[in-house]
Design a protein around this nucleic acid. Structure first.
Length: 573
RNA sequence: GCCGCUGUAGCUCAACGGUAGAGCAACUGAUUUGUAAUCAGUAGGUUGGAGGUUCAAAUCCUCUCGGCGGCUCCA
C-alpha cells in the first residue's frame, strides 16, 4: 500500500467534510474545487458573506460532528446529462463548468450524510477515518487562478493519519516560523526595507552586508578558478538596446522606463545585453571561445505589489550572473561544467537539490528547431552528470530552455536556486559572430547561468536553512570576547586584537554587565564563539572558549584557538 | 494588481469613542561580577500619512503608503 496515496485520499475526504460544514453553516455557498495538496487540503467557496479566521473554530467544530456521525462515503455514478441536471437544480455553476471539462460519458459523485459533490474520488470509507486535522488559514483565490475570474474564498487545512503526525506537522510549522528570514533578519540586524524608500528594495545592515560580501567573495574566487572573467556594466541603457534584445516585447511588463534628455532609457532587468556589448567590442575567433563573463549584476524588475515577500521576492536584486559565449560543439561541455560548479557550491552551503528541465513556453523567440536542439543538449548534459531531473513543460524563458535547480533546506522546504539557460536567440538578434577555422563567420551560442540566483533570495534561503546560526566562515561576527569584569577589558582587547590581526571577525563586550548577561546576549546573536576572559585567563594567556551550540569547551591558549578557527574557516565546515 | 487581515516608543505588545501604557533596548548612577537576563532612576510617541464623522478618534468612515496570508508570476 502506498502511504502517499492514502494520505491524499484522507485529505481530499477532509476537504469534502469541510465543504459540508461550510455549506451547513453558511447558506448560499457555491462550491468550487477542493483538492488535497502537499501537507493538507483546501476548498474554494463562492459565498455571499466574508468569513474570517474567527469562523474557523466553528467550522472545525461542525466538521468534528460530521466525523463523529461516521457517515459512509458513497460513490454515485451518473451520466453527464443527469449530472448536469442535478447540478443545475442546485445552481452549482462552478461545478457545472467543471462537468463540461470532463470528457467521459459517465461521471461520479461522492456522497456522505447529506452532502454530495461531483468528484473523481477516491475517498475514505467512513468519515471517522479522519482522525487528525486542523484548519489553518483563509485566503482569496481566483476561480481557476485567472485574474479576471471571480475571487473565491479558500480555506486551507491540514490532515494526517494520526494525532502524532498532525502535531509533528504543526511543530514544524512553528519551527519554520521561528526561522523566518524576515524575523531573523530583524533580530540579527541583517537587513531592512523602508516604507519611505519603496517596497521590494533591500537595505543591508553591516552584519547582513558582511554575510553578503563573504558569499560574493567566495563566488568570485570560484568563478575565477573556472575560467570566468569579471565584467561590470551600467544600470541603465537606452531603450534601443532593449529593442534589439527583444525585452521591450517579451519583458515589458517587468521593466522600469525613464527619460534622459528626451531619450527613453530602461533600468536593466537583466544583464545579458550588457555582456553582449562587451562581447561585440572586437572580432572574436573560434580560438577565443568559450568566452565566460561574470559579474554580480544588479537588476530591477517590476513585480506586482502583492507578490513581494521579504528577500525572496523583491524589485531590485543582484544575481551572480554569467554569460558563456561558445561554439555549438562546446555547448554540452560548458553545460556539464556549469552543473559541476553548481553541485560544488550547493555542497559548500550544505543544500540538497532537485533538478528541473523547463521546455518551450507558448510565447517564445527563435525557431522550434533551435529550441529542440538546445533542449536535447541540456538533457544530454544532465544525463552525463547523472543528475536525475524532471521535465517542466512550457516553463522555459522566452529565449531558450533552461535547467532550474531547487534547493532543499534543513526543514526539507524547496527554494528556487541555480538556473542555466541556453540561448540561440540573442546572439542572432545582436548579430554576434566569431571567425571559424575556415574563415567563415559563425554565430556563437550563449548560455545564461546563475549559481546562487539572486543574492537576496539566496541569503533569505540561507538564513532559514541555518536558522540564523551561520557557519563559522559566514558568521558576520565569529567570536566575541567577554571580560568577566571591567578590569579584564584590557586583556580582552589584547585577545581581540590578536584575533583580528589574524583575520577573525571579533568584538569585545565591554558593557558593565554580569558574565551571564553577556553570554546570553552573545547566544541570542548566534555568535559561534564566546571567549570568556577573567583573572585566570589573563594570568595564563588563555581564553575560556564557549561555543554557541557545544557550550563550555574549557580554556586554551589564544594561538591554539586561532589555529582551530583558521582550520574550520578554511574548510568552510 | 486582486481578495482578506493588519500598521501604537528602536524592538515585542497593551489601551478597542472619553486626557496613550508595559517589558526589553537606550541614557545616568550604584554594583566589579566565572558560562543564557544585577538594581535604581531618566528620557522616549501629532498612534504609517492625508482627509472626514463626532462635544470627543489610536479606536468609526474614505483615500493613500507599507506589512501579513493567499491568487498569479518569478531570480
Amino acid at each position: 500500500m502506498t502511504k502517499k496515496a492514502d494520505l491524499e485520499t484522507l485529505r481530499h475526504s477532509a476537504s469534502h467534510i469541510m465543504a459540508q460544514a461550510v455549506v451547513e453553516l453558511f447558506p448560499g455557498v457555491k462550491l468550487g474545487i477542493g483538492p488535497s495538496i502537499e501537507n493538507g487540503f483546501y476548498y474554494d467557496f463562492d459565498m455571499p458573506e466574508q468569513i474570517t479566521s474567527e469562523d474557523l473554530p466553528k467550522i472545525e467544530k461542525k466538521m468534528k460532528e460530521i466525523i463523529k456521525s461516521n457517515a459512509k462515503f458513497e460513490k454515485i455514478e451518473m451520466t453527464k446529462e443527469e449530472a448536469a441536471q442535478f447540478l443545475e437544480e442546485r445552481e452549482e455553476k462552478y461545478k457545472i463548468e467543471i462537468l463540461h471539462e470532463i470528457p467521459d460519458k459517465m461521471v461520479t459523485f461522492y456522497k456522505h450524510g447529506d452532502f454530495i459533490d461531483l468528484c473523481r474520488g477516491p475517498h475514505v470509507r467512513y468519515t471517522k477515518e479522519i482522525k487528525a486535522f486542523k484548519l489553518l488559514s483563509i485566503a482569496g483565490a481566483y476561480w481557476h487562478g485567472i485574474e479576471t475570474n471571480p475571487m473565491m474564498q479558500r480555506i486551507y487545512g491540514t490532515a494526517w493519519a494520526s494525532k502524532e503526525d498532525l502535531d509533528n506537522y504543526l511543530t514544524s510549522l512553528e519551527e519554520a516560523k521561528k526561522r523566518d528570514h524576515r524575523k531573523l533578519g530583524k533580530e540579527l540586524d541583517l537587513f531592512s526595507m523602508h516604507e519611505e524608500a519603496g517596497a521590494g528594495f533591500v537595505y543591508y545592515h553591516p552584519k547582513g552586508a558582511m554575510v553578503r560580501y563573504l558569499i560574493e567573495d567566495f563566488m568570485r574566487q570560484e568563478n575565477l578558478k573556472r575560467g570566468y572573467e569579471m565584467v561590470a556594466i551600467p544600470h541603465i541603457a537606452k531603450i534601443d538596446l532593449w529593442n534589439t534584445s527583444g525585452h521591450t516585447n517579451y519583458y515589458r511588463e517587468n521593466m522600469y522606463f525613464m527619460q534622459i534628455d528626451e531619450q527613453d532609457y530602461v533600468v536593466k532587468p537583466m544583464n545579458c545585453p550588457g555582456h553582449i556589448l562587451i562581447y561585440k567590442r572586437k572580432l572574436m575567433s573560434y580560438r577565443d571561445l568559450p568566452v565566460r563573463m561574470f559579474e554580480f549584476g544588479t537588476v530591477y524588475r517590476y513585480e506586482k505589489s502583492g507578490v513581494l515577500h521579504g528577500l525572496l521576492r523583491v524589485r531590485g536584486f543582484t544575481q551572480d550572473d554569467a554569460h558563456i559565449f561558445c561554439r555549438l560543439d562546446q555547448l554540452e561541455e560548458e553545460i556539464v561544467s556549469v552543473l559541476e560548479f553548481i553541485d560544488f557550491v550547493m555542497k559548500t552551503f550544505k543544500f540538497e537539490y532537485e533538478v528541473n528541465l523547463s521546455t518551450r513556453p507558448e510565447k517564445f523567440a527563435g525557431t522550434e528547431e533551435n529550441w529542440d536542439k538546445a533542449t536535447e543538449i541540456l538533457k544530454k548534459a544532465l544525463k552525463h552528470k547523472k543528475m536525475p531531473f524532471e521535465i517542466d513543460p512550457g516553463a522555459g524563458v522566452f529565449y531558450g530552455p533552461k535547467i532550474d535547480i531547487k534547493l532543499k533546506d534543513a526543514l526539507g522546504r524547496t527554494w528556487q536556486g541555480p538556473t542555466v539557460q541556453v540561448d540561440f536567440n540573442l546572439p542572432q538578434r545582436f548579430a554576434l559572430n566569431y571567425t571559424a577555422a575556415d574563415g567563415t563567420k559563425q554565430t556563437p551560442v550563449m548560455v545564461h547561468r546563475a549559481v546562487l540566483g539572486s543574492l537576496e533570495r539566496f541569503l533569505g534561503a540561507l538564513i532559514e536553512h541555518y536558522a540564523g546560526a551561520f557557519p563559522l566562515w559566514l558568521a558576520p561576527v565569529q567570536a566575541k570576547v567577554l571580560p568577566i569584569s571591567d578590569r579584564h577589558n584590557n586583556y580582552a582587547e589584547k585577545v581581540a586584537a590578536e584575533l583580528r590581526q589574524a583575520g577573525i571577525r571579533v568584538e569585545v563586550d565591554q558593557r558593565k554587565e554580569k558574565i551571564g548577561a553577556k553570554i546570553r546576549d552573545a547566544q541570542l546573536e548566534k555568535i559561534p564563539y564566546m571567549l570568556i576572559v577573567g583573572d585566570n585567563e589573563a594570568d595564563a594567556g588563555q581564553v575560556a572558549v564557549r561555543h554557541r551550540s557545544e557550550g563550555d569547551l574549557g580554556a586554551e591558549k589564544t594561538a591554539e584557538l586561532l589555529a582551530k578557527l583558521r582550520r574550520d574557516i578554511d574548510s568552510k565546515a
